[in-house]
Structure formats: C-alpha cells, structure tokens
Design a protein around this nucleic acid. Structure first.
Length: 829
RNA sequence: GCGAGAGUGGCGGAACUGGCAGACGCGCGGGACUUAGGAUCCCGUGGGGCAACCCGUGAGGGUUCAAAUCCCUCCUCUCGCACCA
C-alpha cells in the first residue's frame, strides 16, 4: 500500500535530527580541505522573511550541502547584524528596549530560518549587539586611533534629519538617506572618521584578482574614482598661504582665468571679511550651505557664484585672476578649490559666460576646416579638450593634446615649484560616528584638561547603559545617562565626559566573518592561526545592495587587520555571488514589481511550508530561474515543485518495495547511461549555481526511472540504484525528503555518510547518437548512428536516406561539412 | 551623458566552445480515473498550412557550409555612476 507523502512531518523530524546531531558543526582549529561558505548576516528586523530573502539562504544552504557531500570541511555559520536604527525607533515608538526588541526578532528569525531546513553551525552564532562582540569594535577603533586611521575632525558632513544622525557618503543615495529617504543636509560638525582614503590604491588594486561580477567591481572602481592630475598653488593677494587647487588638466593652466572656491573653503570667510561686499558674500555662503545635497549636486543645476573681490596670481602666466566662490565646487573633493579654465571645461565655461569672465583657449586645431585656429569653446561638446596642440602657453606651445602634454605640464610646474603631480580620489574618509544609542559606544573620553583621550584597553568594553528612556527623547538618549557620561579622565584622573556617539553599524559587519572562527574568544578579536587556515571566505552570498557599502568597508578593515598582523590576507571574500531579486506581478497594473513589505506584495514562506513543506519551497525557489537574475514568483509554479516531489516520493516508495539492495545495471542500460549523464549535468550546474537546470535534469531522471519501472525494462536492483543517485543529487535542494528515503533505504543520514556521486565519462555519453543531415543548411534527415562513425560511412548512410536523396537529387555536390557525431551538411548547387 | 547587463512561445526559462531553437516547469486543449484532493495520471501544445513544406530568437545589414550565439548600425528595457575639477 502506497504511503502518502507527508512533508510537514518530515520537516519536523529531520530538522530535529540535524540539530541533535550537530550536523553542521565544524571545528575551526582544523583547516584541512576547508570550504568557508557565508551568507551575509541579516539584520533581525521585526517582519517575517519573505521568499525573496529566502532565495539567498536557500541558495547558500544548497551550496553548503553540496560542498559537504563533496567531502569538504564546510563552514556555514550564521549571526546577526543586530545594532541599528529600527530597533531604536521601535523603542521610541513603543518603549520596549532595543535589546529586548532585537533579541525577540532574532529568536523569531532563527525559527524561520530553521523551518526552511537551513543548516548552520549555530555553535558559532554571534550578535553584534553583544558586548562580547562589540568590545572588539572598540579595541579595533583604539588600534586605528593609535595609527592615525581613526581621527576626529570638524567638516561639512551629511545629516539626516529623519534619523537625527550623520551619515557616511556611502549611505547617501541621490542626495537622500539610504535608510529613511529623507533629504540629506550638509552640516559642519565634529565627527569621527576612518581614514579609508589611505587605502584607496590598495582597495583598487585588489579588485583585479577577485572572482566577483564585473558589475560590482566596476561599481567599486567608480566609487573609489581615481584620477591623476596635479595640485597647483595660486598665491592670493593678502593671504599668507597660497590656495591649492586639484586639476586633472594641468596642461590647460595657461587658460585658467579665475579661481573658484567652495563656500565652505577656509579661505572663503577671510576673503569675505575684507571685501566691501561682505554682506552679499556672507549671504551667498549661508544660502549654499543650507541647500540639500541633492540640490547642490544635481548636474545642470544653475551655476552660481559671487566674486570675493580678491585676486590670485596664475603662476604660469604671472597674471592676476579673480577669486570667486561657486556653488558647484564641492568642499570635500580635491582641495575644495578649482582653477577655472572656461575654454576647456564645460562647467567653467557656463560659469564664465554667466559672470563675464575671460574665456581663453589654449588648444589650437591642427586639421579639419578649423585648422590653425584656436578651439572654439562654444562648439565644444565635451568638457575636456581633445585634439589640437597647445598654443598661447609659453614653452609648452606645440605640444599635442594628450597624456604627454599633461606629464610635461606636471614636470614643468614641479620644476618651478608651482605645484606637484597628485592622484585624486572620489572616495572620502568613512564617517563612522552616529548620534544614536543602539550601536557600539566609541571608546573616547573628553577631558577638560587633556582633551580627547582614548579609553584604556583594560576598561573595555565600554558597555551601553540599559537605564535609558527612549520615548520622548530629544537627541541621542545616551546623553541623558549621567551614569554613562560622567567618568574620570584616564590621563589626569579628573572629572571627564564620555563620548556619546556610537559607531556606524557597518563597522560591526566589516569583520564578523573573522569572528565566526573564534566567536567565544574573550582574549582576542581575531585568532590569527585560525584565520590563516580558514580565510578567505570561499563563497560569499548576498544582495547587490551591498556592492559598495559593506563590501568596500569589509575589504578596507581586512587590510587594516592585515597591517595589524592579525590576518595574512587582504581580500576577505574570494568569490562573491549576488542573487537577483524575486518579483511579483501586480494583477492590478500588469506590472512586475519588486517584492517588498512597503508594497504589501510579499509572499511568506510560512504558509507554503505549512501546506507543502520546506522542500517544495526550496525546489521552487531554486527552480524559478537563474539565481543571479531577478525572477517572478508564481503561485502555480509552486505546484509544479510540489508535484515533482510527490512523484519522487511515489517512486521511492515503489522502488523500496521492489528491491532490498541496489544493483548495477549493464553498461548498455539506457537508464544507467542517463543516470551518469545526469550526475555530470547536475554537478556542472551546481558549480555555477544553476540549480534551475539541475532540477530540470532531475525531473527528467525521475520520469525516466518511473517509466522504466512501469515498463519493467530494468531490474528492481538497477531501478533502486538509479533512484538512490536521484536522491543524492536532489539532496542539496530537497534535504528532508531525500534524508527520509535514504534512511528508509537502510542508510544513515546524508550529511554524515553520503558522498556526492561520481560519473563515468564513458557511461555519461551515449553509444548511439542522432546525427543531423542538412542539405544547404536545412535539416532534411536524421541518422541514428554509432558514436565515432567515419565521415565516409555517414555520407553513404545519408545518400541512402530517401528524404535526403530527394533533396540532393542529381545536383552536383559542392562540398560536405562533417562534424563528428553531430551533423553532416551537404552543400549542393 | 558615461559605464555594465539584458531582449528567445501565452508565461518563467533552456540551448557551456557557432552545429536539431524552445529542455524543464507553468498555463492552455483533449482524455483517463475517482480514496472528491489546493487531487493525480496519460496525450498534445512556437506560428502558418494541418499534408509536403514554409516562417520563426528586439529591428536592419554582414561573416560562415551553418548564427539566439561572432561583427557593424539602430531600437527598447534594467541597473550603477553622474557639477569629482
């Protein structure tokens, strides 16, 4: 009597068994045959995971199980990116403490992960809000401070009014807060930074060897934004220090007809003061600074400026040029000041035309209708000049446009002491301080006598105080905790105040992958021996949204740790996979939308698991399409996965009754051939994460075995053998059902004693092949031939074929193209 | 504007180095069975003819015995960057 497939019972049974057996536990002291598989650790939010999140974890779990079956010591840990604003906002709204809120979410999310049959080494679980974890953020911060890599400065920074905190540049998207969507303002504040710019060159160089998508690598490259050029000094009348500008086109220096400073530039205020136009200039500075980042940085935005009345000396021409303040000059790129070359830069041109500043071309055309005439700035379509030779440029005249001209200009100005060659980066230092409670306290103390001093290592961790009121709080709740704030100076022992800023949560996530190797170690942040054995992470899986933020910070911190002697690698993630989103068709609009809580179109795996079991959700999620692309969720599609698993179950049931042992079918058994071909296909597909085609191959194998069983064309033993292979190959995708049948077939469960099957390349290729016969490139016949047949034999067979003969007729054969075992193309005139 | 990627049946998608376009699944059409279950099973399913055949991978051109795949031009969509000097 056939037994019905009861997936819910199997889920319960096997999840329990795996957990009791510690199936995913790995001793990281032993690094032989290691494979480090890692999903980006999640933020434990209050809402349930939807199938879009599920895809990420299911894919990781399938990869983990496959590596394990291939015999590698595979580490697959899980932890929680547990600090962050949502918990604090929930506290403000409901009064529940962020810790309580976060721990509750962790508990629920963990259950949900387990319900999908995901296997993690929970003995290494960590949460970044745990003092045992974040003390090492503080330790790292102190080491960086000692080396000048952590520092405090007053600078124009991004302020999110919604989150009431400053943000890193990376967290500002289109001028808005990446989290809340509020328009970001620029404010002058004293903040803590990590000197990531010191690592710009290394971060750029390291991208070369990474097995990451070009997409992500390009994004990082653009973000770092390296450009070569020069810093040039312009003496300014009345200032003791010359103003430095950064330019990528020092070759156009003779065409610099004005200087423009960002309104935030330190010299701006000085120049304003001594100008008769003081009030107007002050108003301009104020107005620009109040603009949001979006307004300030939108291209094509109206260029505005104000003349300071001051003058500078163009060092190469010896001429006096006006000094302006301009809204399009950014305070935190280059030196915050530019030389204006209106003839050869689109922005400078617009500005100069608007304010009547001299436009002076320095390149002259050498060919075309305008040969021997200066380049016409009006006709220029691009910002930078291309072509022509230098003119009106003293010694430089006649130098052709190009890198050589730039090099020559740099040499020249260096020789004369007017400036020097320099590389500029778009990348800014990482602003890591946040004016919020739920994060790692920055281990610094403000002493009226000694200034800002580090907390000694012996006093770590600086623990977040619990007795803080959130509701109705103004500003950072930490400030109200007098018990926390009041302290004594470690230097002079006098009364002092603790820093109340906390760290960006991206600090937490920049090194957690190392902590999984020694999560309980209270004596050190990273265990260098284990790190040497286990790093880098062999396969990292996560969303594309971290292409810059997390992935750049982690690469930076890994290098810092290397320089501290804790790890011996620079790149933490050897291979990166970014899964695509899961979308949902909106029946009302007919449009495909991303699945998100705010749209209310999420599909929860929970009810699907209740009805069909975790394996159905897993099979469908992996079957839905290539995992790197976005895919559309379909309710009906789930039913296809469900039916497939039922058929597998029915097949196992039937086969188990037929034979107590597997046996080998003869080499010419079509089923055995298919079995080996399927192993080959699934192995290759899994290696490139294409479980959708792997599942398709397994569906074909299942059907073939079922048909052979119905037809009685194979012995019960060989049916059983093929079925066991099916179970092995299916295990990473559908672990509960396969473990169940593997056990019923008299074995122990998968992760302990099953190896990924090997295929015999001879068996994986069939003996006979269908060879296509074309006449003039069109298929006119098919021949069932022995593999390896000679061209002459095939040609003879083709000529004997009636249909082929009809098409060839008695026309002369111009040529015949033969592709072994594939095709014969007879070309006739 | 710059950079990256993608356009294949009614739908999701296959086709690894050029060699039978549409595997597998959904949907749809037909049938079987009924323990009436979100049933299940079998057959069919690119379009036109309903046969021989012809036409088909965003559009147009090219290379080749042979192109979804390579080259050129163009169109559409998605993503990233964008006043970075």
């Amino acid at each position: 009597m056939a037994e019905k497939y009861d997936p819910v019972a199997l889920d319960r049974k096997w999840q329990r068994r795996w957990e009791d057996a510690g199936a995913a536990k790995v001793d990281t002291a032993d690094g032989r045959d290691k494979f480090y598989m890692l999903n980006m650790f999640p933020y434990p939010s209050g809402s349930r995971l939807h199938v879009g999140h599920g895809r990420n974890y299911i894919l990781g779990d399938a990869l983990f199980r496959r590596e394990r079956m291939a015999g590698r010591r595979t580490l697959n840990p899980m932890g929680w990116d547990a600090f962050g604003l949502p918990a604090e906002n929930a506290a403000i709204a409901s009064g529940v403490h962020p810790r309580e809120y976060t721990l509750g979410n962790i508990g629920r999310m963990k259950e949900q992960l387990k319900s999908l049959g995901l296997l993690y080494d929970w003995s290494k679980e960590l949460a970044s809000c745990d003092p045992a974890y974040y003390r090492w953020n503080q330790w790292l911060f102190l080491r960086m401070w000692e080396r000048g890599l952590a520092y405090r400065k007053t600078a124009p920074v991004n302020w999110c009014p919604g989150c009431r905190t400053v943000l890193a540049n990376e967290q500002v998207v289109d001028g808005r807060c990446e989290r809340s969507g509020d328009l970001v303002q620029i404010r002058d504040l004293t903040q803590w930074f990590f000197r990531i710019t010191d690592y710009a060159e290394r971060l750029l160089a390291g991208l070369e060897g990474l097995d990451w998508s070009d997409r992500v690598k390009t994004m990082q490259r653009n973000w770092i934004g390296r450009s070569e050029g020069a810093e040039v000094f312009f003496p300014v009348d009345g200032l003791t220090e010359p103003i430095a500008v950064f330019t990528t086109r020092p070759d156009t220096l003779f065409g610099a007809t004005f200087l423009a400073l960002a309104p935030e530039h330190p010299a701006a205020a000085t120049l304003a003061e001594r100008s008769p136009n003081r009030a107007e200039i002050g108003a301009f500075i104020e107005r620009v600074r109040r603009e949001s980042r979006l307004e300030r940085e939108s291209e094509g935005g109206e260029k505005e400026g104000v003349a300071t009345g001051g003058t500078a000396l163009n060092p190469v021409t010896g001429e006096t040029i006006p000094v302006w303040l301009a809204n399009f000059v950014l305070p935190d790129y280059g030196t915050g000041a530019i030389m204006g070359v209106p003839a050869h830069d689109q922005r400078d041109f617009e500005f100069a035309r608007k304010y009547g500043i001299e436009i002076r071309p320095v390149y002259r055309m050498t060919d075309g209708p305008d040969a021997d005439r200066d380049i016409d700035p009006e006709a220029m379509t691009e910002a930078a000049p291309h072509g022509g030779v230098l003119a009106h440029s003293g010694d430089w005249d006649g130098t052709p446009n190009g890198p050589a001209a730039i090099r020559r200009a740099i040499e020249w100005i260096e020789e004369k002491g007017f400036g020097k060659g320099r590389v500029g980066y778009r990348l800014r230092d990482w602003l890591i301080s946040r004016q919020r409670y739920w994060g790692t306290p920055i281990p610094a103390i403000h002493c009226p006598a000694c200034g800002v001093v580090p907390v000694p290592d012996s006093q770590l961790p600086v623990v977040l105080p619990e007795d803080v009121a959130f509701q109705g709080a103004e500003g950072n709740p930490l400030e109200q905790s007098e018990a926390f704030v009041a302290t004594e100076c470690p230097g002079c022992g006098g009364p002092a105040r603790r820093e109340t800023d906390t760290m960006d949560t991206f600090v937490d996530s920049s090194w957690y992958y190392l902590r999984f190797l020694n999560p309980a170690d209270g004596t050190k942040m990273v265990d260098p021996e284990r790190a040497a054995k286990w790093m880098p992470v062999d396969q990292y899986v996560g969303g594309i949204e971290h292409a810059i933020l997390h992935l750049l910070y982690a690469r930076f911190i890994c290098r810092v740790l290397k320089d501290l002697g804790l790890v011996d690698i620079e790149e933490p993630f050897a291979r990166l996979f970014n899964q695509g989103m899961i979308t949902k068709l909106n029946p009302a609009t007919g449009k495909v939308e991303k699945m998100s809580k705010s749209r209310g179109n999420t599909i929860s795996p929970d009810d699907l698991i209740e009805r069909f079991g975790a394996d159905t959700v897993r099979v469908y999620t992996l079957f839905i399409g290539p995992p790197e692309k976005e895919s559309e969720w379909s309710e009906d599609g789930v039913m296809g996965a469900w039916r497939f698993l039922q058929r597998v179950h029915d097949l196992c049931d039937r086969v188990a009754a037929g034979a107590p042992e597997p046996s080998e079918a003869p080499a010419d058994s079509p089923l055995r051939r298919l079995e080996h071909r399927t192993i080959e296909r699934v192995t290759a597909d899994a290696a490139r994460f294409h479980f959708h085609t792997a599942v398709a191959a397994l569906m074909e194998l299942q059907r073939a075995i079922s048909e052979a069983a119905a037809a009685g064309s194979e012995t019960p033993g060989s049916l059983r053998r093929a079925t066991e292979t099916l179970l092995k190959l299916l295990h990473p995708v559908a672990p509960h059902l396969t473990d169940e049948w593997w056990e019923r077939f008299g074995n122990r469960f998968f992760l302990i004693d099953v190896a990924w099957p090997d295929f015999d390349p001879v068996l994986a290729t069939s003996e006979r092949v269908t060879l296509v016969v074309q006449v003039n490139g069109k298929v006119r016949g098919k021949l069932d031939i022995e593999r390896g047949a000679s061209e002459a034999d095939v040609l003879a067979l083709a000529h004997a074929d009636e249909k082929v003969r009809a098409w060839v007729g008695d026309k002369p054969i111009a040529r015949a193209v033969y592709v072994q075992d594939r095709l014969l193309n007879i070309v006739v005139r």
